[in-house]
Amino acid sequence: MFNMFRLVQNENMKIYKRLGTWIMIGLILMIVIFAGGITKYLLAENVNLNWEEQVQIENAQLLEQIEEYENMPMVGSSAIQPLKEDVMINNYRLENDIPPVENETLWGFMLSSPDFTALASVFVIVISAGIVATEFSTGTIKLLLIRPVKRSKILISKYIATLIFAIIMLLTIFVSSLIVGSMLFGFDGINLPYLVYSGGEVIERNMLVQIITFYGLNSIDMIMMVTFAFMISSVFRSSSLAIGLSLFLMFTGQQLVMVLSDYNWAKYILFANTNLYQYVAGTPIIEGMTLAFSIIILSVYFFLFILISWFTFNKRDVAA
């Protein structure tokens, strides 16, 4: 175990002594600050209505739409259900005097901050794609592997270092959003709960817990793509291929599933399952999918990726 700690230390040294890594972290910070500024100074809505009136207008629109949908035979109940839930949540707000979270508040900003993880994913993929492949392309792999350490331990240390980098990226977003949000928007509405519809009723959830859950859901997607990049990097020993392929799939995977969503087997595609939001809010991309199903599919892919990386890294000749 001590040994593993030192190996991870090595991998960390190789990540954080590179300028590029710090540029990535800097870019994340800049994006968060930039987004905060935009929200505060450009998107601020001057509405004269109070929140009760707004919620009532929204409800009226929702009900109208529900009625419209109900008259269209093609639209299934799965499309109508979320609208009904929104109406119920809005009613709950009016009854219990809980205003919705505005964008220009700390919580509003924090609720939108998990979106930045897409950018962080790109950066973590870049690191993941390079962590094995660059050892091959620069030839350093030869000196790395002639040490009294098993190849699999070296591979594990690289994977752990990649995950640590992913966590650092997520923390950077979370902490900087918290700081930027509280500096720009203050602490108005800090006691507001997050309302969700669950099991036929509206329940109040702690806002912070909810935000952290969103980060968690997003990081599943990130980890799958990062592990995929890691595998491509170990199999093909090329970081550009690993970056290219992973980013391409990350950005087109969902669309691919969309196109294929008429086929039932499409639910076994990785990208049909990476977005776990679909079970928290909204409807599954393919009818009949459940959270448990997605978790099983994700685990299968995950172990497959890890197994392939492990096998090729351990067994293949190093001819770099």
Binding site: R6, L7, Q9, N10, M13, K14, K17, R18, L19, T138, G139, T140, K142, L143, R147, P148, V149
Partner: peptide, 19 residues
């Protein structure tokens, strides 16, 4: 072939951690 972006000393630290 060494890690070019590290110092010579860091390179040696790196290998020493594997012993």
């Amino acid at each position: 072939e060494m890690y070019k972006y590290l110092t010579g000393y860091d390179n040696l630290i790196h290998y020493s951690r594997m012993i």
